[in-house]
Every structure is written in C-alpha cells, then in structure tokens.
C-alpha cells in the first residue's frame, strides 16, 4: 500500500479511459510496436489496477490464441 501511495502521480487515468483504449493498445502490442511508449497513461493504469491488468492479460491470451483469425 505504501508503495502505491509513493507512486501516486498527478496525472492518472481511470478504468473507463483504460478500457476505452485497451483494444488499440493491445493491437499495437500484437503488432510488435510499443504501446507502453505511445500510451503511457494506459500502461501506468495497467500497473496500478489489478482488474484492468487481469482483463488486459486475458484479452492478450485470447487474441494470441486466435492468431490471424477473422
């Protein structure tokens, strides 16, 4: 908890903004680009929010398994 408090930044995004951008973030990741650099606020939120991180990881798993389908 203290670590989370120490790491608090002035600018952070919430779960809605993160969810909104998650599909384009993950497509960049799958394309071998660096969404962490292009969307640092999304990356920051994913590190802080366990729910969003879990959804990101599950989505990545789903898309990686589907490969180039549809």
């Amino acid at each position: 908890m203290l670590r989370a408090v120490i790491g608090t930044k002035e600018e952070e995004i919430g779960c809605d903004d993160c969810f909104d951008k998650l599909d384009s973030f993950i497509e960049m990741k799958l394309a071998g680009k660096s969404p962490e650099q292009a969307m640092p606020l999304v990356q920051d939120h994913l590190q802080r929010c366990k729910d969003c991180r879990q959804e990101y990881e599950a989505l990545l798993e789903a898309l990686q398994n589907l490969g180039s389908e549809v």
Binding site: F19, K21, L22, D23, S24, I26, E27, E55, A58, L59, A62, L63, V70
Partner: peptide
C-alpha cells in the same frame, strides 16, 4: 474503429 471490431468485441467479452 480504433481497432478491429473483433478485438473490440473480444475486449467486451473478456470483461
């Protein structure tokens, strides 16, 4: 249209 529609739909399904 920021991503493929199928990626957007999968995001909703995963959540």
């Amino acid at each position: 249209g920021d991503s493929k529609l199928t990626t957007w739909a999968m995001k909703i399904a995963v959540r």
